[in-house]
Design a protein around this nucleic acid. Sequence first.
DNA 1: TTTAATAGTTAAATAGTTGAACTATTTAAA
DNA 2: TTTAAATAGTTCAACTATTTAACTATTAAA
Lengths: 150, 150
Amino acid sequence: MDRKKIDELIERYIKVSFTVTKRAEELVKCEIDPDITNEQHYLLRYIHQKERCTSTELANVFRVNKSAITAMINRLVEKGFVRRIRDEKDRRVIYLALTEKGSNLFASTEERVHKVVGSFITKFSEDEIESFIQTYEKLANVLLELEVES
Amino acid sequence: MDRKKIDELIERYIKVSFTVTKRAEELVKCEIDPDITNEQHYLLRYIHQKERCTSTELANVFRVNKSAITAMINRLVEKGFVRRIRDEKDRRVIYLALTEKGSNLFASTEERVHKVVGSFITKFSEDEIESFIQTYEKLANVLLELEVES
DNA sequence: TTTAATAGTTAAATAGTTGAACTATTTAAA
DNA sequence: TTTAAATAGTTCAACTATTTAACTATTAAA
């Protein structure tokens, strides 16, 4: 691959990822309950998927400091969507889980988010979207592997 | 495409885009001058590319209210990276442009960002990355067309 | 049994964001 | 032509998200 082509691809990637990220965030915002933010919805998604998890785990997955997680989780706890459960074996650890209310909010919101994502994905052929996502997943794995080095 | 496959693709897309976005933001942050934020770098990039633009245009491209742009541009002006230029024909309009200092900062930062993006892109074959970006661009266009409807 | 490390919180500071109210200016309508 | 509507941008208050440093509590290791 020659230098010129590489530079062209880099420029295109930077531009397109900017556009898609901004627009996708906006679409998600339209679908979620106005009572929560996009980031809060992503937290609910992660906790839902794991059933329960710790602040340290969230900080690592969301790439922020633990204190940022404390602040966001506090808001979700205040709103009654998340609860803290102290580990009885290791009393330093506090597990986070969705409440009934949080679970319901997540389910109904995620259904709308799925619909809107689906409305775009179905504009592509199965082959095209499958190979797109495969490359995207490879890229994600490359980025995830970096962590080992740091 | 059957329902089950669609749902699988949606799940994979949501997951992978989350991961890549978070990790990419983190990498950019490592490369940019600690004196500016990622969003500020993206503003510098856009203004650089357009040579000059307005707040209204930035608000539309960055998908935020104009008052958010005012706040961010104020910070960049205070730091001496951006200057405001009043349009003499239509005195409501204020053009934004990079200063010499802003231009230099952007150039050196963008070089590092290019390098790090390049280090990932070159892990893929030209064919694979070309078709990945093509689909990504199609997706961006689908999202950009929505604007007309709203 | 001190010392290290780990898990999480608090507090101060800053960036980014929205929404409403505002100024200034230009365009359009009566 | 004068008044009303639209446009461009700013200000302000309130809020979320974030970092860094200092902190508490608890567990693991020397």
